[in-house]
Amino acid sequence: MGEITLGQYYPTNSILHRLDPRVKFLGTLVYIVALFLVRGPVGYAVCAAALISMIVLSKVPFRYVLKSLKPVVLIMAVTMLFNLLLTPGEVLWRFWIFKITEEGIRMAAKMGIRLVFLVSGSSIMTLTTTPNALTDAMERLFGFLKIIHVPVHEIAMMMSIALRFIPILTEETDKIKKAQIARGADFETGGFVKRMRAMIPLLVPLFVSAFRRANDLAMAMEARCYHGGAGRTQMKPLRYRKADYIAWAVVAAFLAVCICLSVTGW
């Protein structure tokens, strides 16, 4: 199970899930750029339509998309508040040192819509793409940096290993914590110093096991003659298929429409 419990990935079989991760990654970037290009109501409507059709195509239940908004609610509220209060313009309302302007309301609404669209749009990518597929895509997309001696493959490898280790270590933490609680350890009560001290029985075994695992992994990789990027082939290389070309076309069309809308200001 390990791998799948990481991040937000929602396992199902949809067109978006099967799409090449490179398309999804760059497509998401295009979508984000478009969000900041458009200015008028038509532009926002086009972005909304794009977002809704992506959610429908992904077959991910809507509540999972909503859940991804939860961590950014606070940032969103603060941004909207600042926009609301600090935009100069025609004053509608005055309260102590605060004043609310018509432009402020419009700005705050725009910001709110943009952030909601941005976060749910990028969560569609993470919901339909495994972290490993994403790293793979990045390795390919940034492959050109190898020319200037950026160790792209090594960085990607480190990323996938780190990603792979997160669920393992969470599981391990949970297990060790339970084992120590069974021996009467108390992680919940007491002051700051006592709580910090109570962490020792958890952290020491965790570090020991993390180092042991890292060692074992290094040994296993060496035993299979792993030697980094040069000349290395992949078992499942990313390859564009028909659906991916169609997706590229859709992304390009979307970007063109948004640029036009941005220029006209609709």
């Binding site: 391990e172 297990k175 060790i176 339970k178 084992a179 120590q180 609680i181 069974a182 021996r183 009467g184 108390d186 020792i200 029985p201 020491v204 075994p205 020991v208 096991s209």
Partner: peptide, 19 residues
């Protein structure tokens, strides 16, 4: 907490808990 002194549990692979 006092229940756990009455019911002792040795985990699977308990050697991971030494610190």
């Amino acid at each position: 907490r006092s229940l756990r002194t009455h019911v002792g549990l040795v985990f699977q692979y308990p050697e991971n808990q030494l610190f």
